[in-house]
Amino acid sequence: MNIFRILGDVSHLLAMIILLVKIWRSKSCAGISGKSQILFALVFTTRYLDLFTIFISVYNTVMKVIFLVCAYITVYMIYMKFHKTFDREHDSFRLEFLLVPVTGLSFLENHSFTPLEILWTFSIYLESVAILPQLFMISKTGEAETITTHYLFFLGLYRALYLANWIWRYHTENFYDQIAVVSGVVQTIFYCDFFYLYVTKVLKGKKLSLP
């Protein structure tokens, strides 16, 4: 466990907590893509099936359970508890455009052709594109609440820190997982445009709105 990895995990956790706090405090999930949150719940569910098959560490198990619980509470808030505030009209990204290629690719390019391994690969590929419905929603409405941008910032930061973690692990342990690394790079690229807007607008006290 290196500093990039632990900071990455903390960013990831912080992102999910920021989102939950935003929804809970404002009693509203306006501006949040329910579809992205469903995809993240699906990502964690298919990736963490190894909770039943292998024990890695207390940290690993506890974090996985927390991530799963946070993801499902978020989905519950959006589609059940505060569903009246959910902006269904603007959350119109077609999920099949992501799910079909991701499913196909996870069958074609994986470490081994076993159910758990394919589901893990599926989760890695899906995570790399899961934020797209959210980014699509922002580009459609042309704006995002500042707290939503903080959520996106920490989610992107988590991925960028994981890249640093992989570079570190490659040099110190010769650890290298091609599927995770390539997907991680793709995922981080999706955030670059947003990072730019975050730094030039939100950090200067302006609301994120697109021209």
């Binding site: 990895r5 995990d9 990831h12 190894d50 890695i56 560490s57 690993n60 974090m63 996985k64 991530f67 470490h111 081994s112 052709f113 076993t114 391994e117 893990w120 994981y162 973690n165 650890f175 290298y176 997982d177 599927i179 995770a180």
Partner: peptide
Amino acid sequence: ETEGPVKDEL
């Protein structure tokens, strides 16, 4: 085909 590295990451 071999399985990938140990999946100790989240």
